[in-house]
Nucleic acid binder design. Sequence first.
DNA 1: CGGGACATACGAAGATTTTCGTTGACAAAC
DNA 2: GTTTGTCAACGAAAATCTTCGTATGTCCCG
Lengths: 136, 136
Amino acid sequence: MASRSLSKEPVPPPLPTDAEIAILAVLWRQGASTVREVHDALAKDSGYTTTLKLMQLMFEKGLVVRNERYRSHLYEARAPKEQTQRQIAGDLLKRAFEGSARSLVLGALAAQPASGKDLAEIRTLLDEFEKRGEKK
Amino acid sequence: MASRSLSKEPVPPPLPTDAEIAILAVLWRQGASTVREVHDALAKDSGYTTTLKLMQLMFEKGLVVRNERYRSHLYEARAPKEQTQRQIAGDLLKRAFEGSARSLVLGALAAQPASGKDLAEIRTLLDEFEKRGEKK
DNA sequence: CGGGACATACGAAGATTTTCGTTGACAAAC
DNA sequence: GTTTGTCAACGAAAATCTTCGTATGTCCCG
């Protein structure tokens, strides 16, 4: 049978593991970065080659893209931050919160109280969702 | 040196792994259950002894308690659901959302649109947090 | 040219998590 | 009392995730 090798998109990118999320977080914060820059930003006690290997694996998995034009390759998150965060949140929602966004919000706010400003922003978000939901 | 064995609380219970979360979810839903009951509720293709072993490990870790009075032991989540969910949400918040509850809420709502009723409930939550936060 | 500093690649060890096979205990049914 | 079914308890394999050691290449400087 056909090997399906030539399709446009490799595969739906898998959920990142914990170490991979830590790396993505750095890339989200700093934008395109070298392994060295990511490793330095990671306040970890593991060695440089560990970070390198992880990022190579992430590249193979399609979690990041890289520009090899320079001596030190430049890595970047492949999917926009929001999309990956949505995927992660959705996965957790399903597995640990019975699909109840309410529970997740409650848990998040209880874990880390938000500022009044944040709360206001969240209200704005709710308004938008309400509107979107009521459409039609 | 002293082994610290006799202190009141064994240890802060560790964050549950993925498979453990799945089991906790069942216990949250069904209350005290036998391994058999949990295993049946888990729509998994793994064997019974896998579930058994996991629950035994969870017992050793202090994630669940059990009543051995019956032939089939009865397992229950040790910590209240809300506490564990808060722990999980807080961990994720820190690792993947830059500590921004706003981002997590956005991700959750985007992943699984909430009903108008849910949104209203969330607003109520926000009000409570606002009050609590403004104190002093 | 010959280091030294720093980069990628990659195999494989280590750790952790998940799965399973086997054993022995117990009880109800035959 | 023997068979049958279900259970807990392990030990250890299997799978996954993380870490590291080492080889090798390149650039820059002296």
